[in-house]
C-alpha cells in the first residue's frame, strides 16, 4: 500500500480487500460450471486446436460457424465434422430453410456417407422461414436423444439475435445436446456462442494431382472462445476415423506461431537435460 494512503487505516483496507475477495469468489462461482465441464470436452483431433480449446469443444453449448457465400461447401463439411465428433452414433437433426437447397445445394446422402457420417441418423427439417427454423431448432435441442442439432441459416437475419442465441444455449445446456449454427453469407453479431469459427476451404497439399488430394481440408479460424485464446489452423478431416487432424503434408503453417513457442522451449529443456 502506498504511503499516502496509509491514513485510511488498516480496517478500511481490510474491508476493501474482503469486498474484492468476495467479488472474486462470486465470479469464480459463476465461472465454475464451465471449469467443471472441462473433463466432458470432446476433442476435435487437431492437437493445436484442442490445446487452445483446453481439451476440445463443450458438447452442451452453442457453436457458430461462419462462411462467406461461396464457401458454403467447406463450411458445411466443417460443421458436419463437428456434429460427427459430438455425436458419432446418435441422431442428428439438420434444420434448414427451403431455399438453401437452391442456394447452396441439398445435403447429399452419398456425400454424407463418403464423409464418414451415417445417413441413417440424419433427420432433415425444411423450415419455411427463419422463425420456424429457430423454433424447431430450440424444440429439437430439448430432446436429449439427439447428439447434435445443426441450424443452417443463410444470410443476415434479424431474428437470430442475442435473445435467440441465448435460448438455444439454454436449451443445449439443459439437454446436453450440441447446438451448431451454420451461418453462410452472414456477418458475425454478438451472441452467447461458446466458440465461433470462420471457415474457408484450404488447398490440397502440393504434389502430383493424382497423389492423395481431395481429403476435406479446412482453413478454420477460431475468432471467439469464451474460455481461452483464439487461433487459426489448417485442419484435415479424416473420413475413416471421423476425426480432424493436422494437415498431412503442408509446406508451411498458415497459423502464426505462438509467441512463447512452448514446443521449442520444451525441446531446449530436453536438450539441456540430455547434455
Amino acid at each position: 500500500m502506498s504511503p499516502n494512503r496509509s491514513h485510511f487505516g488498516g480496517s478500511c483496507a481490510t474491508a476493501r480487500m474482503s469486498t474484492l475477495a468476495s467479488l472474486r469468489g462470486s465470479i469464480a462461482r459463476i465461472e465454475a460450471p464451465s471449469d467443471a465441464n472441462m473433463p466432458n470436452r470432446i476433442a476435435l483431433g487437431h492437437a493445436g486446436a484442442d490445446a487452445m480449446l483446453r481439451g476440445g469443444l463443450a458438447p452442451a453449448s452453442l457453436h457458430e460457424v461462419f462462411a462467406s457465400g461461396h464457401q458454403g461447401g467447406a463450411a458445411t463439411g466443417f460443421i458436419a465434422g463437428l456434429a460427427g465428433r459430438m455425436s458419432p452414433r446418435k441422431p442428428l437433426v439438420w434444420v434448414r430453410q427451403d431455399f438453401s437447397d437452391r442456394e447452396s445445394g441439398a445435403l447429399s446422402m452419398s456425400g454424407l456417407a463418403e464423409f464418414g457420417l451415417d445417413p441413417r441418423l440424419l433427420v432433415t427439417v425444411r423450415a419455411a422461414d427463419v422463425d420456424t427454423a429457430l423454433r424447431t431448432a430450440a424444440d429439437a435441442l430439448a430432446c436429449d436423444a439427439l447428439g447434435a442439432v445443426v441450424l443452417e441459416v443463410w444470410g443476415d437475419v434479424r431474428q437470430l439475435d442475442l435473445v435467440a442465441s441465448r435460448k438455444l444455449t439454454l436449451a443445449a445446456q439443459a439437454s446436453g445436446v450440441a447446438a451448431l449454427v451454420l451461418r453462410i453469407a452472414a456477418t458475425p453479431i454478438p451472441s452467447t456462442a461458446e466458440t465461433r469459427w470462420i471457415v474457408r476451404a484450404a488447398h490440397s497439399p502440393p504434389g502430383t494431382a493424382a497423389s492423395a488430394w481431395g481429403a476435406p481440408r479446412f482453413d478454420a479460424e477460431l475468432v471467439r472462445n469464451r474460455h481461452g485464446p483464439v487461433g487459426r489452423w489448417i485442419m484435415e478431416w479424416k473420413c475413416d476415423e471421423c476425426l480432424f487432424s493436422e494437415p498431412s503434408a503442408y509446406p508451411q503453417p498458415v497459423a502464426a506461431t505462438p509467441s512463447h513457442r512452448p514446443h521449442q522451449a520444451q525441446a531446449r529443456a530436453k536438450h539441456r537435460l540430455a547434455s
Binding site: 441439398a106 447429399s108 452419398s110 476435406p216 473420413c239
Partner: peptide, 15 residues
C-alpha cells in the same frame, strides 16, 4: 465407403 479414399461424392448436391 471405400476406406482410405477421399470423398468421391460431394457433400452438397444441386437438385
Amino acid at each position: 465407403r471405400v476406406a482410405g479414399e477421399p470423398p468421391l461424392r460431394p457433400f452438397r448436391l444441386f437438385e
